[in-house]
Computed example of a mutant assay.
Amino acid sequence: MAPNMVPTAESGFLPYPEIRPMLATVGPLPAEHEQAAWAFEAKWDGARCIVSTPGDGTVRLVTRAGNEATATYPELAPLGEQLRGRPTVLDGEVVVLDARGRPDFGLLQRRMGVVNPRRTARLAMEYPVHLVLFDVMYVGRSVLGAPYYERRELLSQLGLRGPNWSVPAYVEGQGRQAWEASLRGGIEGVVAKRLTSPYTPGVRSPEWRKTKHLVTLDVVIGGWTEGHGSLTGLPGAILAGVAEASGLRYVGSVGSGLSDRERRDLAQYLGVIPLGHSPFINPVDVTGAHWAEPRLIAEITFTGWTSAGRLRHPIWHRLRPDLTRLG
């Protein structure tokens, strides 16, 4: 078998390697005195995809989990024509933009996993995806070992522009400006990438660092769901609501971040204010809910709202005894 050739399901061969995505570690932005060595990109709230083509005008998309996604996003097929004659492997993120031009993961979820041709064609009209391309790993030859800045220059030279894909710019050495720009643009956060970093497939590398924006919110606890295993009998998650003029609106469950001690304390507090019905004005899509009088206030952090009005990536921070009324 020739180098960089891989077997396909059709028992043929593709003139490019199968490459798993390089992953970023979670952490703060590099310190200001170190930022000259780093590039800063927007962190897109979407689905990671490896995009490859043998150069024959077709294109293939594979998710981070290794699932085939080509048929799911038919509006990306014309990208293959721009790469005709150039066997290529690219890295990117598939997003759906809302009316303000901001990524909305809730809208993207309506597209994910759909393979029926009629349905994908209809969804492509209603919720068109946009492919954000931010790296190249192969273009006629492997460039995995090339530094980030060289790969980005090569990516820009490919001239990839279309109605459903683009190659957004990055900035060098300006972490604070990138952070503030992402805040203004409603972007999920910033990814810092060392300018000299090679592309290491499948590795969560400290050479790439992602930093998300977090929003702090006080929520009303209107119930809880029981934990499993060692948490049996204790709250596994609380059911959070936001007070509105029409009543308490359910916005999601929060379990991440709770310590064992906090779970025991919550079990004691919630045990003295049970309620025989839901205190929320809207449906609660969980099973086994225990309702409680909406007296406890908690502070949480989260990364944004879904299109269904639910908290995205909520994390428990603390109970707010200064706002809580148990008497």
Rank of each mutant, 00 (worst) to 15 (best):
A169Q: 13
V89L: 08
A47V: 11
L323F: 02
G162D: 04
R100C: 07
W224P: 05
P17M: 12
L14W: 09
R261Q: 12
H33R: 15
T63G: 05
T211L: 09
G162I: 05
R118A: 12
L270A: 04
A121F: 03
C49W: 14
S246E: 15
D56M: 04
A37G: 07
G185Q: 14
G241V: 07
R194G: 02
Y138I: 10
L217I: 05
G185R: 14
L217D: 04
A37I: 00
R249I: 04
E18Q: 14
R320L: 08
R295P: 03
I221F: 09
V167F: 10
T225R: 14
V6L: 12
E262M: 13
Q109P: 06
E68W: 05
E68D: 15
I50R: 03
V51G: 01
V254N: 05
Q268K: 11
R261D: 09
L23M: 13
R209I: 12
W316A: 10
Y199T: 06
R141C: 00
G222Y: 08
A24E: 04
I238L: 15
S166F: 03
R122P: 00
E126K: 14
E262S: 10
Q35T: 01
A71F: 05
L23K: 09
H213C: 05
W291D: 02
P128I: 01
S182I: 00
D260I: 02
E93H: 01
R209T: 15
G252C: 09
E34G: 01
A243C: 01
N116W: 01
M1E: 12
L234N: 08
T200S: 12
S230Y: 07
P163Q: 14
S246D: 14
S11E: 15
P128W: 01
S278L: 08
S142C: 10
A9L: 14
L61E: 05
S52A: 15
M22S: 12
V203R: 13
G55N: 08
A9I: 10
P87Q: 04
M125F: 06
L29R: 09
I297M: 12
T200A: 14
L14T: 14
E180I: 09
N4G: 05
T8C: 08
L97G: 07
L234P: 10
E126W: 04
K212P: 09
Y73V: 06
G85R: 07
L76V: 06
T216M: 00
V6W: 13
P28R: 14
T225S: 07
V191I: 15
S205E: 03
A24Y: 01
L319D: 05
A308E: 13
V272W: 02
I238G: 11
P74F: 07
S156N: 11
W38A: 06
A267R: 15
T211M: 13
F40D: 04
V251Y: 04
M1V: 14
L214R: 14
F40T: 06
P235S: 02
P21M: 11
L14C: 08
G186Q: 09
S182Y: 00
V115R: 15
T232Q: 13
V114K: 12
P235N: 02
V286R: 15
R20I: 03
L97Y: 07
T216K: 09
E226S: 11
P279K: 11
Q35M: 12
M137V: 13
G140H: 05
L90G: 07
F280N: 04
I221K: 08
L76C: 03
K212H: 06
L214C: 01
G288F: 11
P279L: 12
